[in-house]
């Protein structure tokens, strides 16, 4: 049953990674313009300068 220790640690680590990535994406403002993001996929050429 000791494998459970490893599994718990692994699941928490992976879950933690997911949480960290989410918080990072939130902090960098990636949810500020969801309508725009949905449309930007279609801007195939001539990207505007950033």
């Amino acid at each position: 049953m000791n494998v459970i220790l490893l599994l718990i640690a692994a699941s928490l680590f992976l879950g933690g990674c997911g949480l960290a990535v989410f918080l990072w994406s939130l902090r960098t403002g990636q949810y500020e313009d969801l309508d725009g993001a949905a449309n930007r996929v279609l801007f195939d050429h001539d990207p505007p300068k950033r």
Partner: peptide, 20 residues
């Protein structure tokens, strides 16, 4: 809007937020 601004040499950023 972004493309027109993108053609302007002086423009550094021209970004539209569609939601707001």
């Amino acid at each position: 809007i972004e493309s027109v601004l993108g053609r302007e040499p002086s423009v550094l950023t021209g970004r539209v937020n569609m939601t707001s």
